[in-house]
Amino acid sequence: MNIIKNLKTLHAEIKFLKKINKKIGLIPTMGNLHDGHIKLILLAKKYSDIVIVSIFINPMQFNNLLDLEKYPRSFDQDCMILKNNKVDILFFPTINEIYPSGIENQTFITVPKLSNIVEGKARPGHFQGVTTVIAKLFNVIQPNFSFFGEKDYQQLLIIKKLVKELNYMIKIISLPTIRSKNGLALSSRNNNLNSQEIKTAPYLYLIIKKTAKQVIKEDSDIIINIINSSRTLLFKKGFSIDIFNIYDYQTLDVLFKKKKKMIILASVWLGQTRLIDNKKIFID
């Protein structure tokens, strides 16, 4: 595996790969890799001649400095995982490499509406940080494909819109959320949970699934009572709720009546750890 830390070297490598007509697949990450990332790597190998994984803990997408400091870092372990899964290139830049003029002076990219609702409303500026760094990676690496997990569903929608509206010739391919046996969505932030919180955390998805079943079975189109009941259950289990609602599958507008394609989006705190999850609800 080739580990590249600066843009000049990366430019040269990409230029060579393009010259010999290699199909490039990019998996952007913030490190602390888990089975979900490995599944993305395996998926990328099906589409790409060359698989590139980036590891960059992007300070622009953190609106809480403590959250940034606490974000788990495990570079040596990550390298072992990438080598074992035969990743071709690891791009591991410094902050100065990505933001040479400093974050406060960085030109940024914002996807309107989708970046300012739901998770974007709870974390102002978060998605601006995501889209800015993703656009920079796309510009430098020029991948044919880029791979993302569906756990961060709003992020996935935003990146698809970014690609479409900035005319990137990149195919975005998503992977359904990878879960542990107890149903908890895999996330680097799970490492911050203590032993009691690890036992409690799976209830988030259990309650999400229960909510989805109730929405499908409910004769009435009105869904607010189901949502309120689910929020109460989460509270009783010890979760503090930022977001728990049913949204339009594409626009992420809050729904008060059932539609054919919906999605439950949840962002909750368990102790000092913020967990996100979702579930699609498709009604024939």
Score class of each variant (00 low, 15 high):
T29Q: 01
G129Y: 01
F147I: 02
T29E: 05
L33H: 01
G149Y: 09
P112G: 08
Y99D: 08
T107L: 07
Y99F: 13
F145W: 00
K121V: 03
E69I: 15
K151F: 08
E104L: 15
K136Q: 05
D78P: 12
V53Q: 02
T107V: 09
V111Q: 09
Q61H: 09
S115V: 13
N144K: 12
S48L: 05
F147E: 03
T132G: 03
Q77V: 08
I103M: 14
I81H: 04
Y99N: 10
L68P: 01
V53N: 01
D49K: 02
N32T: 11
V118P: 00
N96G: 11
E97A: 13
Q142S: 15
H37E: 03
S146C: 12
K23S: 13
D35E: 15
L156G: 08
S146F: 06
N105G: 10
E97R: 15
K160N: 11
Q61T: 06
D67K: 06
K83C: 02
F92T: 00
L66M: 15
T110N: 09
I159W: 08
L66P: 12
S101Y: 15
K113A: 12
I98Q: 06
H34Q: 10
V51N: 04
I159Q: 09
S74F: 04
I55T: 01
I41G: 07
V51W: 02
V140E: 04
E150K: 07
D49V: 02
K83A: 01
G102K: 00
F92M: 05
S115C: 04
S48K: 04
G25C: 07
L114I: 10
K160V: 11
I159F: 08
T94V: 09
Q142K: 14
G102L: 04
I109C: 14
K86G: 06
I109A: 11
D67L: 07
L65M: 13
L157K: 09
N96Q: 14
S74D: 14
E150S: 02
F147D: 01
L82E: 03
F56V: 11
V118W: 01
H126P: 10
I134D: 07
F138L: 12
P93E: 00
D76R: 00
V51R: 05
C79R: 06
I98F: 03
V118F: 04
H34I: 11
K160W: 09
S146I: 10
D152F: 04
L114M: 13
Q106V: 09
P28G: 00
M30Q: 03
G102V: 05
G125S: 07
K160E: 07
F148Y: 07
Q142R: 14
G36I: 01
H34E: 11
I98E: 07
K121D: 11
N105L: 10
L157M: 07
P112N: 06
K121G: 11
T131P: 13
Q106M: 06
A44F: 05
I134V: 11
N85P: 00
P100A: 14
D67Y: 08
N84V: 00
N63T: 10
T107E: 11
I159M: 08
E97W: 12
H34T: 12
L114V: 11
L66A: 15
S74P: 02
N96P: 04
E97Q: 15
L114R: 10
L82W: 05
Y47Q: 10
S48T: 06
L90D: 01
R73L: 01
F108I: 15
V130Q: 06
